[in-house]
């Protein structure tokens, strides 16, 4: 088991090394992407600040607290840009060109390969913005630093990463039937933007939808509550179960979908 774990970690490192060297072949992209990230970052802080011009709060969340939510959103975005986007667009291409054949013939878990084959550096600016925002928000709010807080935050953030991954992966899997699903992922991205603000800022019905149907609450609000030490043990356990369930569904769906893969003709 441990041997297998190290094996997979080694393999992932190699995947990332290879894909980074592949990106270095095209050096010019870097600057534009970094610039876009910075502008995007400034823009979202500005919009958020508009809600607070009169000193009001957002669904019971203060300015500093909302910054933590926005910071977590940025962290997830960096994960999307570095891992989800480059790999899951590749699934669509694999299906379109029939090169999924090669993936399926490797003696390695096909989900692992299609999900983590490449990594993009362009998620780094978002990662940095996220870390700054979460730290700043935490510093500004009057909560005390505790080890349990950090542990709960890391745990719940990992959960939100897994949920986000499962959502994307579910959608990308449908390309086995529909081939081109790229527009659908754009819709998903827009929906996920709702995660920039705490879930309590939305009306009750939307809140229900964003919790159970499209689990946006789990993505940003719940990890933010962990930072703010406002989360109960029951909620942590519930989130954990929900995450495991969600991941299992996405995996089962992939295995199910592969039965229908007919591979592009030659």
């Amino acid at each position: 088991m441990i041997y297998k774990f190290f094996n997979i970690t080694g393999l992932l490192c190699l995947f990332f090394k290879v894909s980074l060297s592949s990106q270095l072949e095209y050096k010019l992209n870097i600057l534009v992407d970094v610039l876009a990230s910075i502008l995007n970052f400034i823009g979202s802080i500005f919009i958020l600040s508009l809600f607070f011009t009169n000193g009001s709060n957002l669904g019971g969340w203060s300015w500093a607290e909302t910054l933590i939510v926005l910071g977590i959103y940025n962290l997830l975005e960096s994960f999307t840009i570095s891992i989800l986007q480059p790999n899951l667009t590749q699934i669509v291409r694999h299906v379109q060109q029939g090169t999924l054949d090669f993936v399926l013939l490797k003696p390695i878990d096909s989900q692992l390969w299609v999900s983590f084959r490449s990594i993009s550096l362009w998620g780094l600016p978002s990662l940095l913005c996220g870390i700054i925002l979460v730290s700043y928000g935490f510093y500004q709010s009057d909560y005390h630093f505790a080890l349990t807080t950090i542990c709960a935050f890391i745990l719940l953030l990992s959960c939100s990463v897994v949920i986000l991954y499962s959502l994307w992966f579910l959608l990308a899997t449908t390309s086995i039937w529909f081939v081109k699903v790229w527009n659908a992922t754009e819709v998903l991205k827009s929906l996920l933007m709702a995660g920039k603000y705490p879930i309590h800022a939305y009306p009750a019905t939307l809140r229900l939808i964003f919790t159970y149907l499209i689990p946006i609450a789990f993505l940003t609000t719940i990890p933010a509550e962990a930072v703010l030490n406002r989360i109960s043990v029951e909620m942590i356990v519930f989130t954990l179960c929900f995450t495991i369930l969600f991941f299992c569904i996405s995996r089962a769906f992939w295995i199910f979908a592969l039965r229908f893969y007919t591979s592009a003709s030659s």
Binding site: V18, S21, S22, E25, Y26, Q97, G98, T99, D101, F102, L105, K106, P107, S266
Partner: peptide, 19 residues
């Protein structure tokens, strides 16, 4: 099983294009 077989296709490639 997969360790014992291989498939080569004249019109599809598995090599990484840029490397």
């Amino acid at each position: 099983f997969l360790n014992q077989i291989t498939l080569v296709m004249g019109q599809k490639q598995q090599l990484i294009w840029d490397l």
